[in-house]
Simulated assay, not measured.
Amino acid sequence: MEAAGRELARSVSRWTEGLERFTPAIPNLNIYRREGPSEPCVCMVEPSVALVVQGTKQALLGQDVYIYDIRRFLITSLDLPAMMNIVEASPERPYLGLVLKLDLQAMAEIMVQRRLPPPPAQPAERGMVVGHTTPALVEAFQRLVNLLDEPESIPVLAPLIQREIYYRLLMSDQGARLWQIASVGSQSHRVARAIDWLKDHYAKPLRIDDLAAHVQMSASSFHHHFRQLTAMSPLQFQKWLRLNEARRLMLAGEADVSSAAFQVGYESPSQFSREYSRLFGASPRRDVEGLREGLR
């Protein structure tokens, strides 16, 4: 395990020299490097597996903290608002990590094709979880990164290696979580469909009964499972989407405070400013000015 991890760390270090993020020609893969601890960053985490090969990182989802490093990977099984930060890194030993976006349809196909037995039924839990990294998983990622030295092979071999990674995850100690989200008709899969709807219609008024019916759940069951998986209610999730889109619009110079509020579905700019300040810790104008200053 340690030897495989060191080899992968050398490969990641080579491809990220002088960069904080490297997006290779391999679809759905991103590679990261940081040479010091970072402040918590609010972001939407896509369904993905995050593998750390050097250093330590943590994610905060609601009140839950997930710490992952060379021994532990992080699975995010559906789109989740979270706070992420690097907790262990230095110029001598930078944080090095890889994130592979999960193809849930491909995972469902593997479950059917390999006739994998379903895990025991489990109550709904958070959509984010830490699992134990195995040598087989590290070696599969190593083969994926090795393709960067033979780019002509990427279209043929990358999908095969990614399917192997999905298989390793399904067979891991946290495979049951992925089964829940990849199985069509499961409660987790229905919540994922609701999240997709919210992402596309965040600016519209939200009626919980209508959204629950859209994903074929009762309102009470929908609300319970949504909160269990995401650590927030559907209305809080919608608010998070609205405020982060407004932040993006203002930072890009596409809207001022009032117009951003209206564009994302707020009827009252004062209510927008209050909720924005609660989420980001500063008024919209001050927050955006601080972000722009940090980009200079």
Results as ranks from 00 to 15, higher is better:
M1Y: 02
A3K: 09
G5W: 03
A9N: 01
V12Q: 08
T16I: 05
N28S: 14
Y32V: 09
R33G: 12
R34A: 09
C41K: 13
S48R: 08
L51E: 03
T56A: 10
Q58V: 05
L61C: 15
G62V: 05
I67A: 15
Y68I: 11
D69Q: 10
T76L: 10
D79C: 14
L80C: 05
A82V: 10
M83T: 07
M83G: 06
M84E: 11
I86W: 02
P91H: 15
G97N: 05
L100Q: 00
L104C: 14
L104S: 12
A108Q: 10
E109I: 01
V112N: 11
Q113C: 12
L116Y: 01
P119N: 08
P120Q: 03
Q122E: 14
G127M: 06
V130T: 15
E139A: 13
Q142D: 07
L144W: 08
E150T: 07
E150Y: 03
E150P: 00
S153G: 04
L160Q: 09
I161P: 04
E164K: 03
Y167R: 12
R168G: 10
L170M: 12
M171F: 00
S172M: 12
L178S: 01
L178K: 03
W179G: 00
I181M: 07
I181P: 01
A182Q: 05
S183H: 11
V184M: 05
H189L: 07
R190F: 03
L198K: 01
D200S: 08
Y202N: 11
I208E: 04
D209M: 02
L211T: 05
A213P: 02
A219H: 12
A219W: 04
R227Q: 15
T230F: 07
A231W: 10
P234I: 04
L235I: 14
Q236C: 05
F237W: 13
F237D: 11
K239R: 15
E245G: 05
R247E: 03
R248M: 09
R248V: 10
M250T: 09
S259A: 13
F262I: 10
S270I: 07
S270W: 09
S270H: 10
F272E: 06
F272T: 06
E275V: 00
G281H: 02
V288Q: 06
L291R: 12
G294K: 14
